[in-house]
Design a binder for these strands. Sequence first.
DNA 1: ATTATCTATAGATCTATAGATAATGC
DNA 2: ATTATCTATAGATCTATAGATAATGC
Lengths: 249, 249
Amino acid sequence: MAERAVRKTPQRRTKAAQRARTLERILDAAEYLFSRHGLNGVALRDVAQRVGVHTSLMHYYFADKQRLFEAVFTRRAGITSSRRLDALDRYEREAGASVTVEGALRAFLDTDLELYIEGGKGWKNFAAFAARVSNSPEGAALMDLHFDPVVLKLIGILKRALPGCADADIFWGYDFVSGALMHVLARTGRIDRLSGGVCQSEDFAAVKDRLAGFMAAGFIALCADRRKAGKSRRRPAVGRRRARGAAAR
Amino acid sequence: MAERAVRKTPQRRTKAAQRARTLERILDAAEYLFSRHGLNGVALRDVAQRVGVHTSLMHYYFADKQRLFEAVFTRRAGITSSRRLDALDRYEREAGASVTVEGALRAFLDTDLELYIEGGKGWKNFAAFAARVSNSPEGAALMDLHFDPVVLKLIGILKRALPGCADADIFWGYDFVSGALMHVLARTGRIDRLSGGVCQSEDFAAVKDRLAGFMAAGFIALCADRRKAGKSRRRPAVGRRRARGAAAR
DNA sequence: ATTATCTATAGATCTATAGATAATGC
DNA sequence: ATTATCTATAGATCTATAGATAATGC
């Protein structure tokens, strides 16, 4: 019935190109499926079917399922990590001594959100994938491996913007920021239903308008409150540090 | 070798009691395992082994794995939900016309955190379980079903505490709060490593000291910022609402 | 007489490997 | 001559059900 010209893989290029193309398609399919069903909710056959190849090809390109999962994470994690490192560097250079909490958070958060806004479907899938990883214990090692450098850079700037603030407050503040960001990236649709359509999970631009400012105010209040409350709190005196020394540069 | 007195199930009580006891043990085991590996990372056999009974007993008590998963969620979700509803009610009654953002958030967040601090292992496992559910699309329906009433109650009070604040800002603010809380509840250990031991995932008391105040400042800044920035933002004029009307009460 | 638990097993699914086939590479 | 893809299949695992056994319930 079909004419002779019909081929399974139209226009095959060089082997290197073919390999690269198939790898990308496998990673895209895996990213999509893992983001929705998690590591164990996806069979290699599901990924293969989505790409339109045989399951055994998954093993040709990746040692096993765990490696495929990690490859999905690694592919984009490095990109967003270095983009944000660059943004933080640039901000530090521009702001000099007058760095602010909001400025640092904008470099960290908005740079990331822009990527998901402008990067197309693949990046949106990665966002949901990463969100899932971030709230699961198995994912912790992946987060550490790829994001520690950016996060520590951010925290360094936050410390300069909040002289005299206890380290614990800054780290906990970061944990709140990270949790909020990751939850937004998950796009579960819950906020859409809760708000009766006033907010939309997919609307990262709306998040970008609000997240950094919101969190910056949180940090500032936290450090102020804690300094005020200082001695009367439940934390034993041992835990309190002389904030003075750390204030300078 | 063993004396005759050794029994598999020591001191069997009434059937109703035995049933209740086994049900609890199954739910505990499932809660623990699901919180760490997710729905698809756990086999019914794993749960049965942990309890020390045969796999087929899982099907005797629960129709299938999905139902077991839901039962784990349902068992405690109702309790924390109504505890927080009560706390919000009480706060509303006490504060009257002078409700504050921080007051409302303390009733909502601290009441929850206290439960995990004082409730023992089971509640801590549930916390991690819920955190996992909250960042996954499959979990959205469970979150909606059990938590919509408390959340809408909280949002009602926040609106009164922030007269003139756009609904979208309040809902997004809630999304940030929820994300931060859930991330904390996941206790992945990442903050421990990032901070070099200064913070500990397990230390919910430290979170309780900080979270509500942090988030309250975020809300207040968000609403103030957005009113200021109002017309120049990317959101088309249609989206802006006359805030006045909603202020009164 | 009812119900909690166990034994046995069917059927489905899933990962992974060995080896065949059909392209590209020089 | 190498490599991308497919066929075939082993072995493991997993869910779910039917039916047996051993307790409690009156």
